[in-house]
Amino acid sequence: MLANISSRELSEWMAYEKITGPLDERLRGDISAGIIAATVSNSAGGKRKAKVSDFLPTWFRRRKTAEEIWQDVIKANTALGGHYRRTYESS
Rank of each mutant, 00 (worst) to 15 (best):
M1C: 04
M1G: 05
L2H: 08
L2Y: 11
L2V: 06
L2A: 13
L2C: 08
A3D: 09
A3S: 11
I5W: 08
S7A: 10
S7C: 06
R8C: 10
E9C: 11
L10W: 13
L10P: 05
S11D: 09
S11H: 10
E12K: 14
E12W: 05
E12S: 14
W13T: 01
M14R: 10
M14T: 04
A15Y: 04
Y16F: 12
K18W: 09
K18M: 15
K18H: 13
K18L: 13
I19Y: 15
G21L: 14
P22I: 03
P22R: 07
P22Q: 07
P22N: 11
L23D: 14
D24W: 03
E25C: 11
E25V: 08
R26T: 11
R26F: 12
G29C: 09
G29I: 06
G29V: 07
D30L: 05
D30G: 06
D30W: 04
I31A: 06
I31M: 13
A33N: 12
G34Y: 11
G34A: 10
G34C: 07
A37D: 08
A37V: 00
A38S: 14
A38V: 06
T39K: 14
T39I: 12
S41F: 11
S41W: 08
S41T: 09
N42A: 14
N42C: 14
S43F: 14
G45A: 12
G45V: 01
G46F: 05
K47Y: 11
R48E: 10
R48K: 09
K49Y: 12
A50P: 04
A50R: 09
V52K: 09
V52S: 04
V52T: 07
D54L: 06
D54A: 05
D54C: 03
D54I: 02
F55V: 02
L56K: 11
P57L: 03
P57E: 01
T58F: 13
W59M: 09
R61S: 10
R61P: 01
R63H: 09
K64I: 01
T65P: 06
E68P: 00
I69T: 12
W70G: 01
W70M: 05
Q71K: 05
D72F: 04
V73K: 04
V73A: 05
I74M: 03
I74E: 07
I74G: 01
K75H: 01
K75I: 01
A76W: 00
A76S: 02
A76Q: 00
T78I: 01
L80P: 00
L80M: 04
L80H: 01
G81R: 00
H83E: 01
Y88T: 05
E89I: 02
S90W: 05
S91T: 01
S91Q: 01
